[in-house]
């Protein structure tokens, strides 16, 4: 994914790898951390934990429902279980297990949705999670993490492990440039300004920060000043901070690699109700994905690339 951050070229990390490494690091410090996998360990990178701590690694077979409730049982025994599979199965196949076995009892289970959004580009609609954000946000007691790069993934996993309660962590399959401002710290619920701007605020979660930063850079060349606000956790979300960051803007753009139904778009529109600030929406518009030859190709097709963000920024400036 190409993006520039104030002209500064940065390193690249993979969220899955950073996740796996962080699990090993946390596992070394805390013997209660256990990891469950549904036969995708080489992809989710839970395999790194298996190598380090085989006794605390549970290969559950291709059985996501049992894996998820079983994780609930491990939490009942005081463990901190991380379940692993693709986001579409984590949130879909095991939805009832998350809701019933885990969330109603506030069990300390971390559900990790790997290869989220369209990032499993080749496998098509059945493997692309466009609805996981909405599904997981709808579950009471759930904290929903949507890190934007490999660096933030480590921070999110650490925060999730430290939080006593159910969590969903949404991870991308592909390599991402480092954009998270580590000096800003990491606090659950608080938006992070990746770039300052006065005309427009672009709200994103997950990987869309990359396209938004690139678009903001292009907008600046056109004389438009766009802020980029990353949302590290869709839930909880500090509504006061979201409102504050929109203050004085001509308009805001919300973009997410997830369905328009029940995602950040609806959330920001709700939070900004009554402010009169126009909202431009960008999301997967209530359709399933399909196979493509790259993640970038799909993002462009579904109008979630930098050029599409730029168009929305231009629109937001002239609104209403």
């Amino acid at each position: 994914m190409s993006s520039r951050n104030g002209g500064l070229k940065l390193g690249t990390h993979n969220q899955r790898v950073e996740y796996g490494k962080k699990l090993v690091e946390l596992g070394g410090k805390n013997a209660d951390i256990v990891v469950l996998e549904a036969d995708l360990g080489k992809s989710t990178m839970s395999s790194l934990f298996e190598e380090a701590f085989p006794d605390r690694y549970f290969e559950m077979g291709i059985a996501e429902q049992n894996m998820t409730s079983f994780a609930g049982g491990l939490a009942l025994a005081g463990k901190i279980p991380f379940t692993n599979t693709f986001a579409v199965f984590a949130s879909g196949r095991a939805y009832d297990q998350i809701r019933q076995s885990i969330a109603t009892a506030k069990l300390n289970v971390k559900v990790v949705g790997s290869s989220s959004g369209m990032s499993d580009f080749g496998d098509g609609a059945t493997h692309q999670s466009i609805d996981d954000v909405a599904i997981m946000s709808a579950v009471p007691n759930m904290t929903v993490f949507t890190p934007c790069d490999g660096i933030e993934t480590g921070l999110a996993v650490e925060a999730a492990a430290a939080l006593d309660g159910p969590c969903y962590i949404r991870l991308c399959r592909n390599d991402l440039e480092d954009i998270y401002p580590v000096q800003a710290g990491y606090r659950i619920g608080e938006p992070v300004a990746l770039r300052e701007g006065v005309d427009v605020a672009v709200y994103t979660h997950g990987i869309m920060a990359h396209a938004a930063l690139a678009a903001a850079q292009m907008a600046q060349e056109e004389g438009i000043s766009a802020a980029v606000i990353h949302i590290p956790t869709i839930k909880p979300l500090r509504e006061d901070l979201v409102r504050k960051l929109a203050e004085g803007k001509k308009g805001v753009v919300v973009c997410e690699e997830a369905s328009i139904q029940g995602g950040l778009n609806m959330l920001v529109s709700y939070i900004l109700r009554g402010t009169g600030i126009p909202v431009e929406s960008m999301a997967v518009m209530d359709v399933f994905g399909q196979s493509g030859s790259s993640h970038q190709e799909l993002l462009a097709y579904y109008e979630l690339d930098a050029e599409s963000v730029l168009k929305k920024i231009r629109k937001a400036v002239v609104l209403p």
Partner: peptide, 25 residues
């Protein structure tokens, strides 16, 4: 009460995970 149950078919998974956790300890 040891677990939240009622959505049928999930209790054995919970019990098995719990049993595995107790063994770890």
């Amino acid at each position: 009460i040891e677990a939240n149950t009622g959505s049928l078919g999930q209790g054995v998974s919970l019990a098995a995970g719990l049993a595995a956790g107790l063994k770890l300890d």
